[in-house]
Amino acid sequence: MKRNPREANQIDEHVGSRVRLRRQLLKMSQEKLGDELGVTFQQVQKYERGSNRIGASRLFRLAGVLDVPVSFFFDGLTAGPSAGMAENEQSPIVYDFIQSSDGVALAEAFSKITDSKVRRRVLELVRALAAEQNASESGEA
């Protein structure tokens, strides 16, 4: 069955997830973003899920409201051989994490640490905790 070219696709989902990420980092509600764009919060929800496409002029306006370059919405996509665009293989793990409230909070807090040695120690702590959990789940502990 041939896909409708007007239907939303994986790129629309990716762009929507980037809209959601930036909105959450700014602690902006869907209602506030909708007001800024002149659309309902339900429309913002549809954009963020990728079920509705975001037109070029609206994407440009979104970039202004969210204070990012338009290219921000396409970060993480690479040109694919036949699909036109495809996400790299590690992206789903990163996107699932950063779209969670814990992921946003952790990224926000981590970015406020300016001392590189402290940042490295936090990373080492997280890796050690993950290894410890994996070991206990597999019965090695």
Rank of each mutant, 00 (worst) to 15 (best):
I98D: 12
V94Q: 05
I98Y: 13
A83T: 15
Y95C: 01
T78L: 15
V70T: 15
F60R: 08
G84R: 08
A83K: 10
V94T: 05
A86F: 10
V70Q: 14
L77F: 13
L62F: 05
V70S: 09
V65M: 01
G84P: 07
V68S: 05
L66R: 00
V68G: 02
S57K: 08
A63I: 01
S71C: 06
M85G: 15
P81S: 15
I93D: 03
E89L: 01
Y95D: 09
S57H: 09
L77Y: 09
V68K: 03
D75T: 14
L77C: 10
F97R: 00
F74I: 04
A63R: 00
P81R: 12
I93M: 01
I93R: 00
V94S: 09
A79W: 13
I98K: 06
F97P: 02
L66F: 08
S71H: 06
E89Q: 01
G84H: 08
G76A: 04
D96F: 09
D96H: 13
L77V: 11
P81F: 13
R61K: 10
N88D: 11
V94K: 01
P69W: 07
S82M: 13
L77H: 08
F73V: 04
F97T: 07
D67T: 03
P69T: 02
G84W: 09
A86V: 11
F74T: 09
I93C: 00
P81A: 14
V70P: 11
Q90F: 11
S82Y: 15
L59T: 02
D96W: 10
F73R: 01
F74D: 05
F74N: 02
F60V: 11
L62M: 06
L77T: 06
P69I: 06
V68Y: 07
D67A: 00
G84F: 11
S57V: 08
R61Y: 04
D75M: 09
P81G: 14
T78A: 15
E89T: 00
M85T: 15
G84M: 07
A79S: 14
E87P: 10
P69E: 12
P69S: 04
S91F: 06
V94C: 03
G84I: 08
G80R: 05
S91C: 00
D67P: 00
G76I: 03
L62S: 05
A63H: 03
G80W: 11
A79C: 09
P81H: 11
S91H: 01
S82A: 15
T78K: 13
D96A: 14
I98M: 14
S91Y: 05
P92I: 00
G64E: 07
M85D: 15
M85F: 15
F72T: 08
R61Q: 13
E89M: 02
L77W: 12
F74K: 00
D75A: 12
F73T: 02
V65K: 02
L62A: 05
I98L: 15
S57Q: 10
G76T: 05
D67W: 02
E89D: 09
E89F: 06
A86N: 12
G80N: 13
F97A: 10
L59F: 08
E89S: 05
A79K: 12
A86C: 07
S71V: 11
Y95R: 05
D96K: 07
L62T: 01
I93S: 02
L66N: 02
F73M: 11
F72E: 06
E87R: 04
Y95V: 07
